[in-house]
Nucleic acid binder design. Sequence first.
RNA 1: GCGCUCGUAGCUCAGGGGAUAGAGCGCUGCCCUGCGGAGGCAGAGGUCGGAGGUUCGAAUCCUCCCGGGCGCACCA
Length: 569
Amino acid sequence: MREVADGHFEEGPALLIRDDIIALVERALGAAQQAGDIPQFAAPEITVEHPARAEHGDFSANLPLRIQGMARMKAIEVAEALRAHVPEHEAVERVAVAPPGFLNFYLSPAWVATQTAAIIEAGETYASSTLGGGKRVQIEYVSANPTGPIHVGNGRGAAIGSTLARVMAAAGYEVEQEYYVNDAGTQVAIFGRTLYARYQQLFGREVQIPENGYPGEYVADIARAVKERSGDQFLKEPGEEPDPDLGRIGLDVMIEGIRADLAAMGVEYDRWFSERSLMEEGGAYDVVMDLLEQQNYIARREGAVWFTSSDLGESKDNVLIRSDGQPTYYATDIAYHYDKFVVRKFDRVIDIWGADHQGHVSRVKAAVAAVGADPDALEVLLYQLVTLKRGSQVVPLSKRAGEIVTLRDIVDEVGADATRFFFLLTGANQTMDFDLDLAKKQSDENPVYYVQYAHARIASILVKAQDEGYSSDGGDTGLLLHEAEQALLRQLLLLPEVVEKTVLELAAHHLPHYAQDLASAFHAFYTQCRVIQADQPDLTKARLLLLHATQTVLARTLGLMGISAPSSM
RNA sequence: GCGCUCGUAGCUCAGGGGAUAGAGCGCUGCCCUGCGGAGGCAGAGGUCGGAGGUUCGAAUCCUCCCGGGCGCACCA
């Protein structure tokens, strides 16, 4: 039981064994200094890592190498001195010194084996933690303009955002997922005029799509739907401005489509935040403008209203209100972030943007500071753009171009699971190619099948065991000492670290890589160790428990990625 | 030009101060007389873009250079 926040307690998972090892090193240092084996000095923060080679143990501390200077001793001697003072721990079988000065920890196979029970008990909460301490974090992602269907690049943001949301929730944050709907501004106006042009065309008028308009067929589709439902209700005299209601209806249709497309990929938001709502009388936009005025961050020149962001270290000032009286996207974005921090008081705000918005990051941070919030509480995660390909042929993504490959196309063709896994596999600041031909192939080249197959295989064995009357009741997990069993168990024990790392780095790609390693360890175990053996009832029970634990962790890992864990494929 | 980012196996990518640099795909060769072969094992394949520097130790940090991507609007 650990305190989460405000005296609220919850059942805690087993502590990370890694943290226990760190504590052992720390205590060894204290004891060695106490005993005079190592001189007194303030030690740096202690870390341990998993050695690349199994012969170097399960955990390795490089502390001796790092403090050899301070101790004025050879690293190897520091290591020896520390080793002599490492306290006993049930999980640690032995501690060894290795040149040039590593302190290596070897876990007890028996201890590792018995962790199976703890994993099964934790079930779908395995690898949950209280790292976030109940802090309120908002994750805003995709937020593509509702003037067109969302495309491949948005899909990458969707996969990363919704996965981070799941993982941070597991790590003890109170997470709110949000989509910022740009339902105001010039692009929306252009969309409205485009829709009206399409609408007029349906009544035989010779009207061109406006310059900079949206040529996609989807606008004509909406126009047809409106005509079907409302006839010529929105038709005005030639040359007149379109009815704003028409634009609004069109936008609603688009937003509903976006919502459905994202839902098809397993992405659900807690809130869809309307940009237009900021502009209401006395809304955040008015408040922020007054605030900036009071803080002397406003300048009027060339007929426009400027934010003097260069006073805050920015390379230049930025326009808030254009000379035509329309606020810029930047101005409403300041109001939006004011709402996030000052009105709704999130502890952390994570914005996930495409890398083409990179220039916007410091501007928004400067604005956040100007309205009195902590700019460090805003974390902007940029993902590099996706190049869409058909084989070696690059497909243009632009909404304005002829061919529009939507996210929905991809999800329909390769499935939500493969789409998500594929997007998550590559680190966010790495550009990636999305090869439609390859993604469509549904072959074993797609690693999601490898992972899901492991889960299905386990389910199949468990069913068979049940059919044949085997049970894991009373099984002794201490029997799981085979090399392949131990390797698998060590993978299972890694998930809490992966979750922590994912949260600390805001790097979702660790999960699919871990999933593959875990599946690989399972498949190797499966090949070497038969589970159901009539002449070995005790071992059968123990291995059934191991299967339960593995299935639990696989399902958990897939679940954190928003990917299904099928029982059959 | 300035800023951000990337350059690691034939291809797609991990690793981002630690020990002999990893995985998948592809390639070569093995493994189904028992639980799902969408599987397993082994092998070939690398001057970690280049050059300096910091460090006990650099693919990792710093500087410069080369080469890609993206920004640098009264667009969003």
